[in-house]
Nucleic acid binder design. Structure first.
Length: 942
DNA sequence: GAACTCACGTA
DNA sequence: CGTACGTGAGTTCG
């Protein structure tokens, strides 16, 4: 067997947990993170530091869940440190004027929140923090120190974590012993030794010239600490040794000064720091004075969450102890011992990294598998895929275990896992890449089927919500230098590996627990078939589609960008020129609704449009109205600018996501849309323009690439009027069913019925009115909404709807019944039994109830269409495999599939699409499929 | 800096 | 006062 990992015994949540903040350093961080000019009261008092500190504190309370909180502040006078060393903290640039008074206000906020603040003469806030964390430890508590001063690292221990801001006050990751070791190469206890050698410019403590953290860490580890380094100063050769000998006294002084005082005589009791519910009036009064509005509610939210009786604190349950497999036999033994059991499997995927400054992944990266954890009921095993010199036999065994359909598995996010295992960056030992077989549950997908409108489906959120346990495993806390290693990088890396294994095992265990929790609910909702025969297989197919991506013509996109940019500039100049007189030549930002309102309604005195939350609307409908009323050329220029700017942004966004292989790899979200639809992101390829000529030019940039080295074409296959056909099927309306069976143009036929004329005599205007109404009905459109859209009177709209319902009474009955049924059941259902729960149908709030009613109308229709195309995708893929075609699915756009097809397979693929898409559902009307081919997406869809 | 609002592209 | 989404720019928070 392999090495047994020392499984850290988890801390029970019943331990009190003190959070203590260095108020001065954190307020200062907040001050620089937020622009002072945007935060001031009417009296001119700046509040950016106060606000930032308060917001940060609330976030930390929520995140760290302390039972007790205190904040320490510095006093302005001398300290024992400045007494010993007059230059201590000298040379600091003067505090900005905007900071004045903000510490005092922060103290007042703390008072209002009932959080004790502490100061001690002659000492600094850090010493108070150190004393309190030491006392907490002595009392058997956990401590969390929040400080912007690195000296706080010396306080880290098994029960004390330090939160040190990386950037601003929003990114404050916890630092434990491993993190300090990884970053500095020394243990937390030795961090002050290192700091003494390196010096701390912020405190005006010069270190040894030329000695940085790297050398300092090396010396400390070589001589067992600073004392050792100083004693052996004579044996250190070279310039750095010389420099060290010349600065021994400085180093000793630094070390004396950076040692935090842990035994201050503080006349306070830890118990007095217990979080209590703040007094509403006190907080309100102070926040009124500070003109803090939005954050006020958050105070009570966060405190209720922490103190609420109905929110029992999460318990840290233990994952079983695990072994780290080092041989194929380790893995084989584990699998044999748990044959037949459902295993939680977690493949640790590293990345993909995000593009700097942007929240999109680096194009063409799909994540790299670095480890695999298997968790059974009472045992677990981890395999490091990232180890140096991987055991070929072990890797083959991992691949076999993952593939083996006989090993029942539960995972979280199968698609991401499949992608990583197949991505080019996979470990070489996996060969062609591993497929993962025997997946009986993906808890991401089962959570979605159980509650499709839930927002957070990541593993940590699911663990928190359903198991009431955190995902993050307790830190292993064992110093990597335990064996006295000198290889710092190796030591830190080893510590990281141990942590990664522990985390992975816990994830696998959580997945298994979640699966046990969800499986009965999936059964109870009748969603098992959807899960196992639709969503899980679809995850595999989507993984392939994402890996494939779609080829784009970069030159074409570049040309479009240049063209659109030029036209945007021209439209901007014209717009400015057309209002130069009224604005005095001001360069209005046409993208700013606020500035537009100023121009339109103040300078040009145009009639006010629809109200929005912040003023008056400048959307295209409003601008169109204004144009009809005023004929002002500014409006035309503005709308032209809007159009072309939108196109330019779309093109620029696409260019940013082209991968090195010349293709765009979107990511589908299988759990984003509450109706069952997919969504597409990074980039969104489901909203590429198509309605305007200029927009269609963008679709010309999506091209057929090569399949296995042979030239291909794109096939586009779409359903015609799928939602109306579903409406016909669900409503069983004889007229509508007839309309589809007639083979006439749908909207002309419906128009002929509504207006009582022959289908061929239906005017274009009548047809478009009927078309708008038909689609609107599936969205819960009102006569008011219809009148707005068609620019007709409400009476006329009402008449249209009456005419429609007179002829298509089944539709009216269906729409009425579907809401009534949903109100009774609490959910709607699609043809495949996909449910959407709508508790708001019984809300007292009229607006919420109306919204839920419209959702209830739409969900069965939109959701059934989603069922049908998902079924079709799986059937098409199965057909491609049966016929051994090399054609491949690339994109899905709700009712359209895009495939890349070698020319020789054109006929076969076309026939396959028509056949499989056409019989993806058995409705009382036919499913009409239209297939087109072309070199580009635009051409194929025509 | 993060969170919100507005506007707008698709089915 | 029409469903379902994702993205980008501007603005606000106070």
């Amino acid at each position: 067997m392999g090495e047994t990992a020392a499984a850290e015994t988890g801390t029970s949540e019943t331990r009190p947990r003190l959070m203590v903040l260095d108020g001065h350093s954190m307020a200062f961080r907040a001050f620089y993170a937020l622009p002072a000019e945007n935060f001031a009261t009417d009296t001119g008092q700046h509040t950016n530091a106060v606000y930032g500190f308060t917001a940060m504190l609330l976030t930390m309370i929520r995140q760290q869940a302390p039972t007790h909180v205190a904040v320490a502040f510095d006093l302005s006078g001398p300290t024992f440190r400045s007494a010993e060393y007059a230059e201590y903290k000298a040379g600091r640039s003067e505090t900005p004027a905007e900071f004045a008074g903000q510490i005092e206000l922060t103290v007042k906020v703390m008072e209002a929140l009932g959080i004790p603040t502490l100061t001690v003469e002659d000492y600094e806030a850090d010493d108070i923090v150190a004393t309190l964390s030491a006392r907490a430890e002595a009392a058997g508590w956990d401590a969390v120190v929040v400080s912007g001063d690195r000296d706080a690292f010396q306080l880290i221990s098994e029960h004390t974590t330090v939160l040190y801001p990386k950037k601003g006050v929003s990114d404050i990751p916890p630092m434990d012993a491993d993190a300090v070791m990884a970053k500095y190469g020394v243990s937390p206890a030795q961090y002050p030794d290192l700091a003494a050698l390196v010096g701390e410019s912020a405190d005006n403590l010069p270190g040894v010239p030329g000695v940085g953290p790297g050398f300092a860490a090396k010396w400390i580890n070589a001589y067992g600490g600073l004392e050792g380094v100083l004693e052996n100063a004579d044996s250190i050769t070279g310039k750095k040794g010389e420099a060290l000998r010349a600065h021994l006294e400085d180093v000793r002084r630094n070390r004396r000064l950076n040692a935090l005082v842990r035994d201050l005589d503080l006349p306070v009791d830890l118990e007095a720091m217990a979080l209590t519910m703040p007094d509403h009036d006190t907080v309100s009064e102070l926040f009124d004075a500070l003109q803090f509005n939005r954050i006020r509610d958050r105070v009570f939210e966060v405190f209720s969450e922490r103190l609420g009786a109905d929110a029992p604190a999460a318990e840290v349950e233990e994952a079983p102890e695990h072994v780290v497999a080092t041989t194929a036999a380790d893995l084989g033994g584990f699998l044999a011992a748990h044959a037949g059991a459902l295993l939680g499997v977690h493949v640790v995927v590293d990345g993909p990294d995000m593009l700097p400054k942007r929240k999109v992944p680096v194009p063409g990266t799909h994540g790299t598998p670095v480890g695999v954890a298997f968790a059974a009921d009472d045992a677990a095993l981890y395999v490091d895929l990232d180890a140096e010199g991987p055991d070929a036999e072990l890797m083959a065994a991992v691949r076999d275990a993952l593939e083996d359909a006989g090993t029942a598995k539960a995972v979280h996010d199968l698609k991401r896992t499949v992608k990583a295992l197949a991505a080019p960056t996979r470990p070489a030992g996996l060969g062609e890449g591993a497929v993962i077989g025997g997946v009986e549950d993906d808890v991401l997908l089962s959570a979605y089927l159980i509650q499709p409108d839930r927002r957070d489906v990541d593993l940590a959120s699911l663990a928190e919500a359903h198991l009431r346990t955190p995902l993050a495993a307790p830190a292993t806390g064992q110093p990597a230098s335990a064996q006295g290693e000198l290889d710092l990088d190796g030591g830190a890396a080893a510590a990281e590996r141990v942590q990664r294994a522990t985390d992975a095992v816990r994830a696998a265990w959580v997945v298994r627990r979640l699966s046990a929790e969800f499986t009965p609910q999936v059964l109870e909702r009748g969603a098992q078939r959807l899960l196992q025969e639709m969503e899980i297989p679809l995850a595999r197919l989507l993984a392939r589609m994402e890996l494939a991506g779609i080829a784009v013509d970069r030159d074409h996109l570049e040309a479009l960008r240049a063209d659109f940019a030029e036209r945007a500039d021209a439209a901007k100049e014209s717009a400015w020129a057309s209002v130069a007189e009224e604005t005095g030549g001001m360069e209005v930002n046409l993208g700013s609704p606020k500035q537009l309102q100023e121009v339109l309604f103040e300078r040009l005195n145009m009639p006010r449009t629809r109200k929005t939350k912040t003023g008056f609307s400048t959307d295209v409908d409003s601008l169109q109205d204004l144009l009809e009323q005023t004929q002002h050329p500014f409006l035309e220029n503005l709308m032209a600018h809007r159009d072309v700017t939108k196109l330019r942004q779309t093109v620029e966004g696409l260019l940013e996501t082209v991968a090195p292989d010349g293709r765009i790899h979107t990511t589908y979200s299988q759990t984003a849309a509450a109706t069952g639809r997919l969504s597409s992101l990074h980039p969104n390829l489901q909203n590429i323009p198509v309605r305007t000529e200029a927009g269609r030019r963008i679709r010309e940039a999506f091209t057929a690439g090569e399949v296995d080295g042979t030239e291909a074409v794109l096939l586009s296959a779409d359903y015609s009027q799928i939602e109306m056909r579903i409406m016909a099927h669900l409503s069983e309306d004889a007229g509508l069913i007839e309309a589809f069976n007639m083979g006439e143009d749908l909207h002309s036929f419906v128009g002929s019925q509504v207006f009582g004329v022959d289908p061929h005599e239906v005017s274009a205007e009548q047809r478009s009115k009927v078309k708008a109404m038909s689609y609107g009905l599936a969205y819960g459109l009102s006569s008011f909404g219809l009148s707005k859209q068609l620019k007709i009177s409400v009476d006329e709209a009402r008449g249209l709807m009456k005419g429609y319902f007179d002829r298509f009474g089944g539709v009216r009955d269906y729409l009425r019944d579907v809401v009534a049924q949903a109100r009774q059941d609490g959910f709607t259902s699609t043809i495949e039994g996909r449910r959407r729960y709508l508790p708001d149908l019984n809300s007292d709030n009229r607006q919420l109830r109306d919204m839920a009613e419209r959702a209830a109308l739409n969900a069965p229709i939109q959701g059934s269409a989603a069922d049908i195309i998902k079924r079709a995708m799986l059937d098409v893929q199965a057909g491609l495999e049966e016929q051994r075609l090399r054609s491949r699915l690339l994109l899905q756009v709700h009712d359209e599939l895009i495939l890349e097809v070698p020319r020789g397979e054109l006929a076969a693929a076309t026939a396959l699409l028509e056949e499989r898409m056409g019989r993806a559902a058995d409705l009382s009307v036919p499913l009409d499929v239209h297939v087109g081919e072309g070199r580009t997406w635009h051409a194929a869809a025509h």
